[in-house]
C-alpha cells in the first residue's frame, strides 16, 4: 500500500494552487524515494515537474511503485477542504482505483477523509536533459511575480536579458513599452531579498506572459525563485517546496521571426 503523511499539509495545498491553472489532470508517480509529477500543459508550451522527497513526510510508505492519475480540479477541491494547519495524509492500496485524503486538525479533534477516483492517464513523459545554464538568477519570488504582472500590461511577451550588469525584463505593445532592471544586490542582510546572478555568458530570451503569470501562482511556496536560462532552450522557473522538494516550470522560448 501507499501512505504519505505530511504534517505541514499547507505545502500540498499550495502545490495544487501552483499547478491547477496550468494542468487539468496529471499522474503522481509514487516510489520509495518520494512522489514526482511531470506534465505538460495542453499546448505543449510549458511543463511542470514536482518532486516531493520521502524524507519530507512524517510517515512515508510505498510498498510498490504506484502511478496515481488524478483530475487536478477535483484534487484541488478536496484539498480546499483541509485547513491550513491540518496534517494531510494520502493513502492508496496497491492496485487501487481510488485514493483517500485524510485531514487531521492539530488537536486531532477533527479528522476528515475524502476518497477520490483515480484516472488512467497515458501522458508521454519528456526526458529533460541535465543542462549547465548560461545564466541563473535568484530573486525574491514576490518581486518576480510583480514584474510579470506589471509588464503583462504592455504586451503578451516579456524579454529577459541577463548580462553582467544585471537582469532586464522588457515588454512592448500598443500602449508603449516597459523596462525593469534588477542589479545584483551587493550585500543584503536577508538572503531572501537578494538578487543573485551567476552568468557564464549573456542571454536574452522572449517568453509569453501568460505562462509566466501562471508559474507565479507558486509564489506562496517559497520566498525565493530561480530563473535558469541558456540561448534557445526552455526557461526553468524553480520554487522550493518548504524543505521537502521543489517545483520546476519549463517554458519554451518565443523565437523572433
Amino acid at each position: 500500500m501507499f501512505e504519505a503523511r505530511l504534517v505541514q499539509g499547507s505545502l500540498l495545498k499550495k502545490v495544487l494552487d501552483a499547478i491547477k491553472e496550468l494542468l487539468n489532470e496529471a499522474s503522481w508517480d509514487c516510489a520509495d524515494s518520494g512522489i514526482q509529477l511531470q506534465a505538460m500543459d495542453n499546448s505543449h508550451v510549458s511543463l511542470v515537474s514536482v518532486n516531493l522527497r520521502a524524507e519530507g513526510f512524517d510517515k512515508y510508505r510505498c510498498d510498490r511503485n504506484l502511478i496515481m492519475g488524478m483530475d487536478l480540479t477535483s484534487m484541488s477541491k478536496i484539498l480546499k477542504c483541509a485547513a491550513n494547519d491540518d496534517i494531510i495524509t494520502m493513502k492508496a492500496q496497491d492496485n487501487a482505483d481510488t485514493v483517500t485524503f485524510i485531514f487531521e486538525s492539530p488537536s486531532q479533534e477533527k479528522v476528515s477523509d475524502y476518497e477520490m477516483k483515480l484516472m488512467n492517464l497515458d501522458q508521454d513523459h519528456l526526458g529533460i536533459p541535465e543542462t549547465d545554464y548560461a545564466c541563473v538568477i535568484k530573486l525574491p519570488s514576490g518581486e518576480f511575480a510583480r514584474i510579470c504582472r506589471d509588464l503583462s500590461n504592455f504586451g503578451e511577451s516579456i524579454v529577459i536579458a541577463c548580462s553582467k550588469e544585471g537582469v532586464k525584463f522588457s515588454a512592448a505593445g500598443d500602449i508603449g513599452t516597459g523596462n525593469i532592471k534588477l542589479a545584483q544586490t551587493s550585500s543584503v542582510d536577508k538572503e531572501e531579498e537578494a538578487v543573485i546572478i551567476e552568468m557564464q555568458e549573456p542571454v536574452t530570451l522572449t517568453f509569453a506572459c501568460r505562462y509566466l503569470n501562471m508559474f507565479t501562482k507558486a509564489t506562496p511556496l517559497s520566498p525565493q525563485v530561480s530563473l535558469s536560462m541558456s540561448p534557445d532552450v526552455p526557461l526553468v522557473v524553480e520554487y522550493s517546496i518548504g524543505d521537502i522538494g521543489q517545483i520546476q516550470y519549463f517554458l519554451a522560448p518565443k523565437i523572433d521571426d
Binding site: M40, H44, L126, T206, P234, F250, I255
Partner: peptide, 14 residues
C-alpha cells in the same frame, strides 16, 4: 512578432 516554440522541439519523449 515572435513565434512560440513547442517544448517537444527541445525535450524528447522518453
Amino acid at each position: 512578432a515572435a513565434t512560440q516554440t513547442d517544448l517537444r522541439h527541445f525535450f524528447k519523449a522518453r
